[in-house]
Design a protein around this nucleic acid. Structure first.
Length: 556
RNA sequence: GCGCCUGUAGCUCAGUUGGAUAGAGCAACGGACUUCUAAUCCGUAGGUCAGGGGUUCGAAUCCCUUCAGGCGCGCCA
């Protein structure tokens, strides 16, 4: 809708430039802001072009606004009224038929309502979670998963060509520690007394893996193998099993990926070496203190960073530089990485590497997801990775379910700390936004169920929408009309939480409407029109919840 | 010490990329069930947008600064 208004305003600006001989440079590429008016006195939509352009064309904002209004295309059927107001805003009120048409469109497009095309957008690679396969996912990863997965659904809905990927750190020191942890637990299980070092993985899941290992062929042979080989097999076994567990957790959370990309692949294919060579040829590496360093340019980062240790092993950073090079080499024009907020210090270095490899650093967008604090009975549950005292994603899913968890993870901007209230997530009342929104869907379904029971004709063809008059009905329709614009803007800003807030607003409007207006009323015309309206509401709620990955129940 | 994120109603948070009179929900108080689900709705009250400067027609939003909270500053990942 905003785009339609934008186009019309542009045509008027072009006409102004022609007829009134105003010098407006490059009307076509001008960014025109159109916003929803929050006050009905200011119409339905408003633009501030006159305010932003006034100075450069040498006119008073209000005069320019008047000119633009006068030069609007004369055949416009879109608007009821157009007024200039305040310091130079132009306010548009849309004609009633336009709003009615929104309902028709929803009925026509069904699950496609809200979808849009974005042909000029670059191909996007979205990487998220990417937790190390050294233990189960915890709640923090859950937030990253919910944000990433919803963002992927949102971007796809808005026409972006997108792939999702999980980067598996299955190489390096931590894999050795993981393998040794398993081996030690296994030996303890076999009655061998051993020390268990402080820096090893102490979680119970390693013990579980050890007893599992005992029952396999691999376990049976473990003792006869040389240490080195046993360690390697144990590492691989642990890593694979833990990754399977992660995939299970993600799948019960409704999250799947287009690809899992293993770090070991970068080592095996020589991509890391190739990346180092390229950086060297671009003069961005330096040897000092026995190690190979990446040299920063200017203030790219606080200091230079090690790529290859004195031991000859590449660092995590070297692998990550190669990984991002690999992604860009596959033709993606935009890389979106979702990281935990504790990795924020790492952004400048990866960005610098991307730039050093010859790409615009803007192709990398990192979304930082802040920490989650679980709250029960009004008190925060303390968590720390160091003590191994973290709550797993699985535990939260078992307790509150996938729907509530996803909805809650998306109920705040991701760069803001989140208090996750477990009691609230389980509550079945107005306080709990996920039930409040799902209840809209269930209520509409219920209306249609009752209609069927009573043998009421719920035919959706050719309703007389002039029967819809109360202001709540108009407000509801206008909010339904906002859905596509909201999605497009949320996608552009990479802000999936906007979908959540939109749905809560829609739910408020609907419940208030439902309370005051009987759908299955005596008057057949009104009844038909209202059924048509609430079915449209149901459809938009369903489409919105689908983007959040939350179910739309027919009955609650 | 340096860097990143955050600071909006008692609490939890939105705020359309700088717009018009700063908005919701909880909690508090007062109301509404002969009804398509009261799993709901309506009303009242609640604000120095952390403080202070600046930029301009216009600032919660941008810049500087102070304060407070969180996180990070490895040849770990």
């Amino acid at each position: 809708m905003k785009e339609r208004i934008r186009t019309i305003v542009k045509r008027s600006l072009a006409a102004c430039a022609d007829k009134e001989r105003i010098d407006i440079p490059d009307v076509d590429s001008l960014k025109i802001e159109v916003s929803r008016s929050k006050d009905t006195r200011f119409g339905d939509y408003a633009t501030n072009v006159a305010l932003t352009l006034a100075k450069s064309v040498g006119l008073k904002p209000r005069d320019l606004a008047t000119l633009i209004t006068e030069n609007l295309p004369s055949d416009r059927t879109l608007f009821e009224t157009v007024h200039t107001a305040g310091p130079g805003f132009i306010n548009f009120s849309l004609a009633r038929e336009v709003w009615e048409d929104v309902l028709h469109r929803i009925h026509r497009q069904k699950e496609s309502y809200g979808r849009s095309e974005k042909p000029e957008a670059p191909r996007v690679l979205l990487e998220f979670v990417s937790a190390n396969p050294t233990g189960p996912l915890h709640v923090g990863h859950g937030r990253g998963a919910a944000v990433g997965d919803t963002l992927s659904r949102l971007l796809r809905t808005c026409g972006y060509n997108l792939s999702t990927e999980y980067y598996v750190n299955d190489a390096g020191n931590q894999m050795k520690i993981l393998g040794r942890s398993l081996l030690l637990r296994y030996r303890q299980l076999m009655g061998v007394e051993t020390e268990f070092p402080e820096n090893h993985y102490r979680g119970d899941y390693i013990k579980d893996l050890a007893s599992e290992l005992k029952g396999t062929d691999l376990g049976g042979n473990m003792d006869e193998l040389p240490d080195e080989q046993a360690l390697e097999l144990a590492s691989k076994y642990a890593c694979d099993r833990i990754l399977e567990g992660i995939q299970d957790d993600l799948s019960s959370f409704g999250v799947t990926y287009d690809a899992y990309f293993r770090e070991t692949k970068l080592h095996e294919t020589g991509e890391i070496a190739a990346t180092l060579d390229e950086l060297r040829s671009r003069g961005r590496v330096e040897e000092k203190e026995g190690a190979l360093w990446f040299v920063m340019n200017g203030d790219q980062d606080e200091k230079d960073r090690v790529l290859v240790r004195a031991t000859g092993e590449p660092t995590y950073f070297a692998a990550d530089a190669a990984y991002h090079k690999d992604k860009l080499g596959r033709g993606y024009g935009l890389l979106v990485d979702i990281w935990g907020a504790d990795h924020h210090g790492y952004i400048p270095r990866v960005r610098a590497a991307v730039e050093a490899l010859g790409y615009d650093p803007e192709v990398l967008r990192v979304l930082l997801v802040q920490f989650v604090t679980l709250v029960r009975e009004g008190r925060k549950i303390s968590m720390s990775t160091r003590s191994g005292e973290f709550v797993t994603l699985k535990e939260v899913l078992d307790e509150v379910g996938s729907d509530a968890a996803r909805f809650f993870f998306l109920s705040k901007r991701c760069d803001s700390h989140l208090d996750f209230d477990l009691d609230l997530a389980k509550k079945q009342s107005r306080d709990n936004p996920v039930y409040y929104v799902q209840y809209v869907h269930a209520r509409v379904c219920s209306i249609f169920r009752i209609a069927e029971e009573r043998g009421i004709d719920a035919d959706m063809t050719d309703p007389d929408l002039s029967a819809l008059s109360p202001p709540e009905e108009q407000r509801l329709i206008k909010h339904l009309a906002d859905f596509p614009d909201m999605l497009a803007e949320a996608a552009e800003a990479l802000e999936p939480h906007r979908v959540t807030f939109y749905l809560i607003d829609l739910a408020e409007l609907f419940h208030a409407y439902y309370h005051d207006n009987r759908v299955l009323t005596e008057d057949a015309t009104t009844k038909k029109a209202r059924l048509y309206l609430v079915e449209a509401v149901r459809r938009v709620v369903a489409n919105g919840l689908d983007i959040l990955g939350v179910s739309a129940p027919e009955q609650m």
